[in-house]
Amino acid sequence: MNREEAKTILLLYRTPADAADPQVAAALALAEQDPELARWFEEYRVVQDTLRERFRQLPAAAGLKEQILSEQAAKRPARERFMMAGAIAAIVIALVTLGVFYLPHGEKSQPQDLSLASYQKKMTYLAARGYAMYLVTNDLKQIQGYLAQNQAPADYVLHKPLETTTATGCAIQFWNGSRVAMICFSTGKPLAPGRPGDLWLFIVNQNGIKDAPTSASPQLATVNGIITATWSEGGKLYVLGTLGDEQAIRKYL
């Protein structure tokens, strides 16, 4: 591969995840040995990052979302509403029947599980199963701004090691009606295709979790095959997770 061929390949480079492609990896390797190519690539990335930012600055037309939702609500056919009402009625009857005949009288209904264990289980499941990134960027300040703009927890404090870890973007998850900030990082290991990160930090308001720890000292536990560290600080509950063992996560605490 010569310099011009490497440039053609690197034109399509977007995030570190692209390095999983052998051609891109070879072009990047060449850039490490070729100062002129490295300089070109660095300048090109600055330009591309700016263009990407400008492109995404275009706001959607005002009221578009509300218009889509209201039109959809109005278009829902009467038949569908009738069927849904019938289905709800059937479920209610079934539940009442179950309550009258099978449940011991006086027993209270099962409350929604708002435990820390349940929260950890859901968040690690999301990380393991795959998720849609709401914002793809390496810029932690941009991530914080995006989360604040979208009413997700944004007044968080990152541990020093995380501040120097490559961020890959963020998403917003939901827990019992509250928004959960999900910040994704790359540990530097090759990422699986389609995976935008391999280290995840979930932040939620502490009062949304029934038995949230009160200590700022991280507690380690493996959940859904992901090693997690959980702690509370400033009214927020933090869960950091990654693949691997305790050693793998301790270096980010």
Partner: peptide, 9 residues
């Protein structure tokens, strides 16, 4: 490849 970008940072 002959039309590589010329925009500068």
């Amino acid at each position: 490849a002959e039309e590589l970008p010329v925009v500068s940072p």
